[in-house]
């Protein structure tokens, strides 16, 4: 039992959030959060469904920059001619999420803020109780490492690495007003509190990409070609100032950004930085060793594509 609200504006949603003193959750598409509710991982009494909020500018490409509502459906992004033309990396990343039917309901904002996942946490209640709950649930240790200090659940967004590589920023709306922050600063390397600068009541409103990159590259590793969350996603761009931005996701608690000058970057240095920053543990269907190996393969593939031209 609980309450369900369907506000038509962000202002109204924030008012409802204030009235429900923390015991609520926002739904945008709700395609992922609904499963958390069914598995007993999310038990808020009140649902505030943001689905009815009408965004004025869903997708606006102007002077090779992009402004987009966070309520834009992933399908709209993958099919938008403007995005395909100017930001094909984003179109590709959106298309790689879930299935065609889910992409009609799931939003870009929801994918950016998707909860971290772990094979020992994202399970039914019975499964978790049988194995022994982990520290992110009601237990006190990490079931993967046996440690008591850190949760290693993985960030599994596919659009986040693409947007971070594109140097995107997001506009967040909370009770105090609007604030624009670089997307890369939204994530914290923690498996339990994986977002920062984001109050409980904050709503992601807009996404801005400053400029069209010179080159782009995207690849996702997963068991099936559809539906599955990522085991490893790599998005890379070279911008107009010859800065390389490579973002790796699915390997660690937050997306990993490597930013270097195109002319001074070496493949050895790149592989070393990636290895150093990825806090990978065995919490995916694909083994850790294989994913680490594939990360090197992806980086080498990107390198040979970009530096051979």
């Amino acid at each position: 039992m609980g309450n369900y609200y369907h506000p038509s504006s962000i202002k109204e949603a924030l008012r409802l959030a204030a009235n429900n003193s923390g015991n609520y959750m926002y739904f945008s598409g709700g395609t992922d959060l609904q499963i958390y509710r069914k598995q007993g991982l999310e038990n808020s009494e009140t649902i505030i469904d943001l689905n009815a909020i009408e965004a004025t500018e869903r997708i606006l490409v102007k002077n090779a920059s992009l402004q987009m509502s966070a309520f834009t459906f992933l399908e709209e992004i993958s099919l938008s001619k403007d995005i395909q033309l100017h930001f094909p990396l984003l179109a590709q990343a959106a298309k790689s999420v879930a299935t065609p039917v889910i992409r009609k309901t799931a939003t870009i904002g929801g994918n950016i803020l998707v909860n971290n996942r772990c094979t020992f946490y994202n399970q039914s209640k019975e499964w978790r109780q049988a194995v022994g709950s982990c520290m992110r649930d009601v237990g006190d240790i990490c079931q993967v490492t046996g440690g008591k200090n850190k949760c290693y659940s993985r960030n599994v967004s596919d659009t986040a690495p693409a947007l971070i590589a594109l140097n995107a920023s997001v506009v967040v709306h909370n009770q105090e007003g609007e604030e624009e922050i670089p997307l890369k600063d939204l994530y914290s390397p923690d498996g339990i509190i994986f977002h920062q600068h984001l109050d409980k009541d904050a709503i992601l409103k807009k996404i801005n990409i400053p400029e069209k990159p010179k080159t782009w590259w995207f690849k996702k590793l997963r068991l099936r070609k559809t539906l599955d969350f990522t085991s490893l996603t790599l998005a890379a761009v070279v911008d107009n100032k010859d800065i390389v931005r490579i973002c790796i996701n699915g390997m660690s608690m937050s997306p990993i950004l490597i930013e270097e000058s195109f002319h001074s970057l070496s493949i050895e240095n790149l592989l070393k930085q990636a290895r150093k920053n990825c806090k990978t543990v065995d919490n995916d269907l694909m083994p850790m060793k294989y994913r680490k190996e594939m990360m090197n393969v992806f980086l080498k593939q990107w390198w040979s594509t970009v530096y051979s031209n």
Binding site: H6, I35, I47, D49, V101, I102, K104
Partner: peptide, 27 residues
């Protein structure tokens, strides 16, 4: 599956296919 994996529960909402198991009735 009741968790958005299999597509068996697909219905149309204003002509758009949605997964019944993930769509709140109130919506």
């Amino acid at each position: 599956c009741d968790e958005g994996t299999c597509g068996s529960c697909t219905v149309h909402l204003d002509g758009k296919p949605v997964l019944g198991c993930l769509t709140p009735t109130m919506r």
